[in-house]
Amino acid sequence: MYRDPKFSSFFNQFGRGDGTPPSLLQKIVTVLVTIAVFGVALMFSVVLFAVVVTVGAVAWGYLWWKTRALRKQMREHPPTGRGMIIEGEVIREVEIEDRPPR
């Protein structure tokens, strides 16, 4: 395998030069450290999820509380069907007199 000379110190620093397999103690420590790191990551993710849900619930409650007067007003005075509005477009009828001469 080709190794770039620029990174040879990196490979020498982190590579296993002698090629011996890890001992039983190293394997046990590796498994324990992996389980501990996974447990800490799981704890942080649960806390982050709880914070996100709490902030979302507070924001929803605030918005609901601030719009209560508007919702009450809309219940008391429902919109009427006056006017000719279709999907936000205003339809204007043009009379023949309104057209410019050609």
Rank of each mutant, 00 (worst) to 15 (best):
M74T: 09
F10G: 07
H77N: 15
A41K: 06
Y62Q: 10
I96F: 06
V37F: 03
Q73A: 13
V40I: 15
F14G: 07
P79T: 07
A69H: 08
T34F: 01
L24S: 15
P22F: 09
G81T: 14
E95L: 08
F49H: 03
E87I: 04
E93P: 05
P79Y: 05
V29R: 15
P79S: 13
I86V: 14
G81Y: 09
L63C: 12
T30Y: 01
I86A: 04
F14P: 05
Q13C: 09
R92N: 06
K72Y: 02
G17I: 13
R68S: 15
V47D: 00
S23A: 04
G17Y: 00
L32K: 14
K72L: 14
V47K: 02
V37A: 15
K27P: 12
H77W: 04
K6C: 01
V31Y: 02
L32H: 09
L48Q: 09
T34D: 12
P21Q: 01
A36D: 06
S23H: 00
I91R: 09
M84D: 13
S23M: 04
V90A: 10
V31N: 08
V90N: 00
R82C: 08
Y62H: 04
G83S: 04
G39W: 01
E93G: 00
Y62S: 12
V40Q: 01
I85C: 05
S45A: 15
G81A: 15
V31C: 13
F38Q: 10
A69E: 14
G19N: 08
W65V: 14
S23L: 03
V46D: 00
I28W: 00
F7P: 02
L63Y: 15
I35R: 03
P21V: 10
I91T: 04
F11K: 05
W64H: 07
V58G: 00
A50C: 11
S45G: 06
Q26G: 06
R75E: 13
K6V: 06
G56N: 14
T30R: 13
M84V: 12
V90L: 09
L70H: 05
W65C: 11
K66N: 05
K27C: 15
D18V: 12
I28P: 00
F38M: 12
A41Q: 03
T20P: 00
G17N: 03
F38V: 07
E76S: 14
E95A: 08
E76W: 00
E97I: 06
V53Q: 00
E97D: 14
V33P: 00
T30I: 10
K6G: 02
F49I: 06
V94D: 05
S45V: 08
V46L: 00
G39I: 09
A59R: 09
V55T: 07
P21E: 12
A59W: 11
I91M: 12
F49S: 11
L24P: 08
G39D: 01
S9K: 06
E95M: 05
K72A: 15
L48A: 11
I28G: 01
A69R: 09
I91Q: 13
I85N: 08
L25Y: 00
S23E: 01
T20E: 07
H77I: 05
R92A: 09
L63H: 11
K72F: 11
V58A: 07
N12D: 15
G56E: 04
L25C: 08
F49E: 06
I85D: 02
N12I: 08
F14L: 14
V47E: 04
F10T: 09
